[in-house]
C-alpha cells in the first residue's frame, strides 16, 4: 500500500512518539490508576499502526516485521506464564501466588508481581493487535503479486 502526503507523514512523526509514551504510562501505572496492560497495549499498537498507515509499507520489509512481531508476542505470553509458574518456586509455593513484597500502597514500585504482569500483557497485546493489522495488509499484497 502507498503512503500518504508529506503533511500527514510529518504530523505522524510528531504524534506517534507521544502516543507510544502515553501507552507506556498507562501500562506502568496500571496498578495505581485506571487502565492497565490491555488498554495500554492497544494504545502502543495504535502508534505503530499510525506510522505504518501514513508512511506506507514496503511489502518485503513488512514481512520481516511480521515474523519479529510474532516472536515478541510469543515471548511476552511465555513470560506471563513464567511469572505465574514462578509462584511455585518462591514464597508459599503456589501457582499464581503474588510472591514479591507488596511495598507501600500508592507507590510506583508496589503490589508485588502485578506491575510485571501488566508490562508483559501490555507487550503481548500490542504485538497481537499490530500483527493482525500487518497480516491483513501483507497477505493481500502477496495474493496480488
Amino acid at each position: 500500500m502507498k503512503g500518504m502526503t508529506i503533511i500527514v507523514k510529518k504530523t505522524t512523526q510528531l504524534i506517534a512518539g507521544m502516543i507510544f509514551m502515553y501507552g507506556i504510562y498507562v501500562i506502568v501505572h496500571g496498578h495505581l490508576t485506571p487502565g492497565g496492560g490491555f488498554a495500554g497495549g492497544v494504545v502502543i499498537a495504535g502508534s505503530f499502526i499510525l506510522v505504518t498507515l501514513s508512511n506506507g509499507g514496503d511489502f518485503m520489509k513488512l514481512l520481516k516485521e511480521e515474523s519479529g512481531t510474532t516472536i515478541v508476542e510469543s515471548l511476552a505470553t511465555i513470560l506471563v506464564i513464567v511469572i505465574a509458574v514462578s509462584g511455585f518456586l518462591f514464597g508459599t509455593k503456589i501457582f499464581f501466588n503474588n510472591f514479591l513484597p507488596k511495598g507501600i500502597v500508592g507507590h510506583l514500585v508496589s503490589a508485588g508481581v502485578l506491575p510485571l504482569y501488566n508490562i508483559f500483557v501490555g507487550t503481548e497485546v500490542a504485538a497481537s493487535i499490530f500483527i493482525i493489522f500487518l497480516s491483513l495488509i501483507i497477505f493481500k499484497e502477496e495474493s496480488k503479486g
Binding site: H31, A84, F96, G106, A111, L114, N118
Partner: peptide, 22 residues
Amino acid sequence: QKTGSANLVTGVVFDFRGYDTM
C-alpha cells in the same frame, strides 16, 4: 491491603482472578 494495588480492578484482575486473565 491483600494485593498491595491501589487500583482495585487491577488487584482483582491480576491477583484474585489472575488465572482467568492469563
